[in-house]
Each structure stands twice: as structure tokens, then as C-alpha cells.
Nucleic acid binder design. Sequence first.
DNA 1: CTGCTCGTTGAAAGCGCTTTCGCTCACCGC
DNA 2: GCGGTGAGCGAAAGCGCTTTCAACGAGCAG
Lengths: 347, 347
Amino acid sequence: MAVTIYDIADEAHVSIATVSRVFNEHPRVSEDTRRRVFRVAERMGYEPHTGAQSLARKGTNLVSAVVPVMTSFFFMEVLRGAQGGLDGSPYDLLVYPSRTFSGVDAQLGRALQRGRSDGLLLVSVRPTPDRVRRLQATSQAVVLVDDAHEAFDSITVDSRWGGRVAVEHLIERGHERVGLLLPVPGTTPGDERLAGYHDALAAAGREPDPDLVVSADWHHDLQGFTRFAGYRAMQVLLDRFADRPAQRPTAVFVAADIMAFGALRAAHEAGLRVPGDLDVVGFDDVDASAYLGLTTLHQPMVEMGQLATEKLRRRLDDPGAPPSHTVFAPRLVVRETTGGAATAPSA
Amino acid sequence: MAVTIYDIADEAHVSIATVSRVFNEHPRVSEDTRRRVFRVAERMGYEPHTGAQSLARKGTNLVSAVVPVMTSFFFMEVLRGAQGGLDGSPYDLLVYPSRTFSGVDAQLGRALQRGRSDGLLLVSVRPTPDRVRRLQATSQAVVLVDDAHEAFDSITVDSRWGGRVAVEHLIERGHERVGLLLPVPGTTPGDERLAGYHDALAAAGREPDPDLVVSADWHHDLQGFTRFAGYRAMQVLLDRFADRPAQRPTAVFVAADIMAFGALRAAHEAGLRVPGDLDVVGFDDVDASAYLGLTTLHQPMVEMGQLATEKLRRRLDDPGAPPSHTVFAPRLVVRETTGGAATAPSA
DNA sequence: CTGCTCGTTGAAAGCGCTTTCGCTCACCGC
DNA sequence: GCGGTGAGCGAAAGCGCTTTCAACGAGCAG
């Protein structure tokens, strides 16, 4: 049997109330008994039972993060920021990872169980009506990261604006025909980046050409956010212009770095030099992007994670406050794939 | 106030004992009341309080996984296997990620708290004397993955043998001088792979040359398992032979794929063609390896995760059983960096 | 010396659940 | 008609902790 508060109360000749006070840093305990209790507790290897604690207090001091982990880098960075934001607070972070987007609901269910945690961080989890219903029924504080809903605090990156910046960068470099590779239809980032693409075209007074746009139809469980999907999408795009090379896009905006890696490979296999024959811009700035010299839009992942926990803590303090929405602007990072200078890898 | 078992007992005109029985699938409940209770519970949105449950039962039905550096594909795959191994069991997986190797102890402390979980999966966590002490003091079941200790169940890959296979592959390809790039000194995989390197040299009747071996001295918090560490290590290696090109190694075994990526970049920057001027073999077979055509040693990550949970469950059933140790043999995957055929990316 | 205050402690009432024990009430065979 | 059986259920005792309330005694002013 594990040692309980009673055992150490007996040994230290105090009541369990006092032991509890010692461990909760209650001010009204004499220095004497405090030390005695600590000594006994240490000797007996006491450790409070978290279940009993969360029952007696009405809180767990835990924050759950539900994350679909496909390209782990983005999530890890966000989680890193979240961990940091929790430092110095009484809260700990618990992670419910899901390998696929569809597995998210199961993990969400677990995280939502009463007594599991006080707050919920949803990263890249689209707030479907069903999920919104479940989230509203819970008493936990909820913060959305990388997606938004008016009912909850949220932190997002302005994907649309980023898409526009990406395409404008390509237009400025003189490209007449700019392709676009997207994940499977219906994702929030995908839709937004597509809109940004159109914005840039419109601002430049150009007509959109559907032939220049390819949506992924592979790896649906990962929403097409894969190297392979990017690889195939690029092949499809190039195939479309196999018989009319003059029309071929000379630049491509790929909606996610991970897809861009596959796209680059397909381009190389097709004998295209990047840059030169083809310029490529990605989105996300994952760790391998710097290494591969990919021009992309950088998302402030660590900052997003950190801010997320700050919002969470604020909401835990004041559940009634109106939801707040923060939108970060992504930053264009020019590297080799659009003629930038090569840099030594740092990671 | 959240709805408790009492509320639904009132509403359904039964005792709380019956409600509890319904939710625990106790056989001695009439079909009638079972349905009634379920209906009421659903209507009121009841959900058991996990803390109270774990207090009353003596178990949480949770398994904690403590993993350093989830940036790495390796951990994700292991976790995927672990999730799979838990499917159909009453256990859920909880993840305590740590960005650095040193952060592991803090996470371990949290996971070890009484009432957090029933079992512990330690992935790539070296069993230091201090950790062993803590792990032996806990009543949780413990399984080590990617490291071993005689006191606990463990699952490892034979790194030494893998290192030998890697180097023998290079020797067979006719290389006289084979370099070795290692993480920071003192890691279990690093030491083992170094031993395998020596094994292969000895078997071929060659003298080891310390000039051919470089240990990382960068990114200590990640034990040098980074692109950058590999990049710099390769530079150091090449620098050593800048004034005597004839002695330069024509092949390099890099102790981790992630380091190999950096090493490849350094090689390219030095104007070396791979393969041709330099052959490279990595270790791990992470997702980007196939994409970059890196010859490497594949570890059965998913299988390891799955087996880990199986051992965990077995141990939970029978805490007294003697520890069992499983060693997987890594499999050589020949790709472009040692002259293998190019393959289309699948991920 | 009396009456207070204040720092320190203990008793006890929960927190929400599981589970043992035992009761009640058919239903059975004899 | 009677004891025996077993299905279905409730009462109540925990599980290990927090927190309120009250008690106690020492120290202080009057």
C-alpha cells in the first residue's frame, strides 16, 4: 500500500489537516512542524494522490493539449511555447496526440472527461458543429490555436494574407503564371491560402486560371499535408501543361512546406531547376525548410503556444470574459527557391 | 456545478450504486433500469469524474509515455504503435513530451505522481541510477523503449549490430577508409553504434583510426541529434583531411539520420558528390530519409511501440513476473546515398 | 487579574465514485 | 406450503485529500 497523508500524520504526530497545510504552503503552520512533516514525508516517500486532490479541490492544475500530429514540427513548437507559458504557474501540460485528423475526436473525448484537466488547448482542430457543442458543454476553459470560432479564445495566423504575400512575392519576381498546390479541399488553412492567392491575382489585375490550381486527393487522413501529396500534386500540375510548355507555370505557391518538399522532388525529377525553371514558395517554415533553402511564410509557433496558455490562464481566472481572438501575421522568409542567398543550417 | 452520479440517481429513481453499476457494465442490473439510467445520464450530460474513479478503484486506466524531443519522427512512430497496442484495452495513453533530454526528469516526476497512471512507457530515456531509484519506488508498471535496464521490461534495437551492418555495407562497396559521425559522447545509441563500427573494422582486419571519428560537440541539450550537429561534424571530419586528400574517407556512417541530413549538406557544400565522392549511411529511417534517398538502418518503430504496451499490460496483470528484454534487429535499407535505386516518395 | 487577539492546530464534513454486504422478492422443487 | 436460490437493488463504508470551524494557549493591553 502506498503511503498516505494519514501515515505521515501519525509519524509526525500531527493531524492530517496539518500535513495537508504543509504541502499546500499554507501560511499558518509553524516552522517547526513544517520541517518535521517534510522530513517524515521525505523519509517515507510520500506523494499526494492526484485523484484525491482533484476531488477535494475542484481543479486538477492540468491543461490538456489535443493535437493532430502529422508534421510534428509545427505542433512541437507550439507545445514548446505552451510549456514555456505554463512555467511558473501551477499548471502542467498533458498531451493527447492523434496521428490522424479523424483520431482527434477520440482524444478530445478523453481530454474532456471531468477531472482530467482544467483547460483545453486545441491545436489545428477545426471547430465542427459537433465539436463546438461538446466544447460548450464542458466547464473547462478552451483555447483554439491555428483555427478559430467566435465562441472561444483563439490564436491564428492570417493565412489569407500570407497567401497573398507569397504570391505577390512571385509576381514581383516577374512570374506571369503562378501555380498553386493545395491540401485536400475543405481545410481552413487551405481555403484561406487559396483566397490569398486570388487576392494577389486580383490586385495584380489577373484572371485566375483553374488549370493552375491542384488540390490534393491523396492521404486524406492527413488532409493531404504530406510530402507525397505535394509530390503528386506537382506531377499533376506539370502534366497538365505537358503538351503546351509555353503555358506552364514558372512559379508555384505550395500551401504547406511539407507538401513543398514533395513538390520540389517532383520538379527535380521532371528536370526543372529550382530556382530558374521554377520558383517555389511554401508556408509554415518547419525546421527542414531552412535546411532545404525553401522560401516560405514563417509562423510564430512558439509565440502562439505561449500566448495560448496565457489566454487559457486568463480564462481560468475569469470564465465570463468575452472571447478574444489574436491573429498573427506570417513573415515572408526568402531563401534559395526564389533566388535568396544560401545560408548554413542552424538546426 | 457539474452533474454527478447523485443527480442522475435522483432523476432515474435508483441508488447511486445502481448508476455506478450501469456505467461499469455490471451484469446484475436489469435491462430496464440500465436503459433508464443511460437515458437520464445522456439527457443530463453526465460524465464520471476521473479523479473520484481513480480514488475509488485503485487504478486510473491510464498509461503515461515519457518521451524526449517529439520533433523526431522516431517518437511519433513509437507512440503510434503504442496507441495501437492499447486499442481494445481499457487503457488510454497520456503523453509527457520533453523538448530536451534534460527536461525529461521533470516530466518523469509528473508522470510518477500517485494517481496519474498505472503504467509508464519510457522512450529513449536513459536509466540513470537516480531514475532507476525513482522508478523502483513507484508502484506503476514500467517499460523501457530504446534503452534497457535489467530491472525493467525493455525493448531495444541492436544498435551495435546495426552499426556493424552499416559499416560492412560500406566496406563491401569497396571503401578503404570509413568515417563515423557520432552524437555527443555518452549516449546509449551512440556508444553502441560506435562499438558496431569497431566490430566491422575488426572483422575486416582493419585498424581503427581516431581521425576518422567525430563526436558532436554542439546542441548538447539534444545530445547532438540534430541536423546542425551532423553538418558541423562532417565539416570537422573533412577539415582534418584538407591537407591530405588521399587519406580522406570515401564513406561515412552517421549515427542518426537527422545528423546525416546535415552531413549531406556539408558534403554538398564541400563539392562532394553523394554517392561517388562520398557514400553515406544513416541510422533510424525517419520519414525524410526515403525522400532524400538516404541509405540507413530501419528500426521497427511501430512494432516497438506496440510491443511496449503489450509488455506493459502483461506486467500490470502480473507485477511479479521477471523482466523481459526484447531486442529487434535493424534492417539495412539501401538507397541512393550508397548507390541504390531512386524511389518515388511515399510519405 | 481579566478579557482579547492571534497564531497554531485538530475534528469533521465533504469531494464523487466503487464495492461489499445484506435485504427483498420472485420463483423453484419438493 | 416451505425452505432454498438467485436476480436486482440500496445502505454504507471507504478511497485520500482539502477546507471550514472551532478550540486551545500564549501574549498583550487595560
